[in-house]
Amino acid sequence: MTDTDLQDLASADLAFAKAARAGLRASESLNYVEAARLAATRAQVRELLQKPRPAMPAWGWLMAPAAVAAVALSVLRFNSFAPTPNPQAVPDLQLSVNASSGDALMWVSDEAGPDFYRDLEFYQWLQSRSPTEPNA
């Protein structure tokens, strides 16, 4: 440990501090039992540092890429199975909604906005995915 010179102190404080330092350092002593206790702790410390740090086990190195691959595969599968709506479906529906047939759809078409067509598209898709649906 480095000793600083305390030169930033006033002369009276400096003399006092030096005397106190000398006296206090001379009083540093440990008896046999205390020294043994601390020696045992230091032995623990040495053991702690000499033991290598716990590394990731071999199965960890195998499992990590496998987990990444599984996630990537599931994302790819999701994208590939997501059906694209039939481009003919929306115009057909628009035609049927806007047709002047005088049925209920006519009333809906007055207020039909983008949400309406999106919902129609969704329900048509849902219908195509459900062969058991009575209206399919």
């Binding site: 440990m1 540093e28 440990l30 205390e34 601390l38 410390v45 040495r46 540092l49």
Partner: peptide, 19 residues
Amino acid sequence: SSATRLDAFLLSVQARAVR
């Protein structure tokens, strides 16, 4: 080596720290 150095350091400061 770091264990040895840390041991030496702790040995040098232990009595003062106890006081």
